[in-house]
């Protein structure tokens, strides 16, 4: 089963040009949002992508979802390189990977009713003949999807503003499920929600994963959430991967100094434990990804840094 590879990302790079000038725009540098990321996701697995703002986790997700053009590298989905597909082939492939977004407000078009939002992917593919569903079947499917994510099918006639944040996120999840994808890329799906709603959504996604045998790529900044949801965690820092670990061993035995610092910074809701914890307080801020750099990206803030860290970038072991 271990070889059952669904997604294989190889040396992915996404560099944005930095341009200056009023009339004629010249490129003055590159912002290396994602700089050589490789990892793989097996079928049925939930893999977490964590890191702080600007580490490139969302850009990585958008590149995998083909919403952001990579500068180089390969994204193999079921063995096919997504970049090499024709528009028609890509359109067919898209059915198999769907997105869940962070902001339950901006992710739903305010002028479209909930039922139509969920049915939209089905209608798009039905119109082009890639799936054969009539309007009645689409409606029935929408209703059953709504029911599955915990919404009353009668809510289909309501506009997004009539729902609470948690309910909107459920609509977003139902939309992602509509095409029966194999992979769901969830970009910070619970970070905009209230604490009491977060666990509802996490549990819902867990149930759905089990029920449909889905694979999840889960992007978040909250390590505790990722540890709960995922079986494997990828820690990113400044466009590169710092560490990949099984979530069961990560907390007990983090290897990378950045992972250690990140874990020690996560507050634990347990006062006596919290008082006894040794916290690794990192010096300074994350450097700008626009700066040219050599060696290990973490070296300026690392308390273990030695000479070699400055000259050569460590490879993933």
């Amino acid at each position: 089963m271990k070889d059952d590879l669904l997604l294989d990302v190889r040396d992915l790079k996404v560099h944005f040009p930095i341009e200056k000038g009023i009339l004629v725009r010249r490129r003055v540098g590159w912002l290396k949002a994602v700089d050589g990321v490789s990892f793989s996701v097996n079928r049925g697995e939930a893999v977490g992508l964590v890191g702080e703002s600007g580490c490139g986790k969302s850009t990585t997700a958008m590149a995998i979802a083909q919403l952001q053009k990579p500068s180089s590298g390969q994204i193999l989905f079921e063995g096919k390189d997504l970049a090499s597909l024709s528009p028609k082939e890509l359109y067919e492939a898209r059915k198999d990977f769907q997105l869940v977004f962070q902001d339950p407000y901006s992710s739903l078009n305010p002028r479209i009713m909930a039922g139509d939002i969920i049915a939209e992917p089905l209608r798009i593919y039905a119109r082009r003949g890639s799936i054969t569903l009539g309007e009645a079947e689409i409606r029935a499917k929408t209703a059953s999807l709504m029911e599955r994510v915990g919404l009353l099918p009668s809510f289909a006639q309501r506009y997004p503003h009539e729902f609470s944040g948690g309910q909107r996120q459920r609509i977003g999840i139902a939309r992602a499920l509509a095409l029966e994808p194999k992979l769901i890329i969830a970009d910070e799906p619970v970070s905009a929600l209230d604490v009491s709603i977060q666990s509802q959504i996490l549990n819902l996604m867990k149930d759905i994963q089990d029920e449909f045998g889905l694979t999840f790529l889960f992007i978040a900044h909250n390590l505790a959430v990722v540890e709960y949801f995922c079986s494997r965690i990828i820690v990113m820092y400044l466009g590169t991967i710092a560490e990949i670990a099984d979530s069961s061993v990560m907390y007990e035995n983090p290897l990378h100094p950045y992972t250690k610092a990140l874990l020690s910074a996560v507050p634990i809701p347990d006062p006596p434990k919290e008082r006894l914890r040794k916290r690794i307080i990192l010096k300074g801020d994350v450097p700008s990804p626009a700066k040219e750099r050599t060696g290990c990206p973490f070296r300026e803030r690392c308390s273990y840094a030695f000479e070699r860290c400055a000259t050569s970038r460590p490879t993933l072991i």
């Binding site: 990977f97 769907q98 977004f101 962070q102």
Partner: peptide
């Protein structure tokens, strides 16, 4: 264009015109 529902539509296979 910056709204996530636009990204959602593209990832649902929607064309630019749509």
């Amino acid at each position: 264009k910056g709204n996530e529902f636009v990204k959602a539509a593209f990832s649902s296979g929607a064309s630019k015109t749509y």
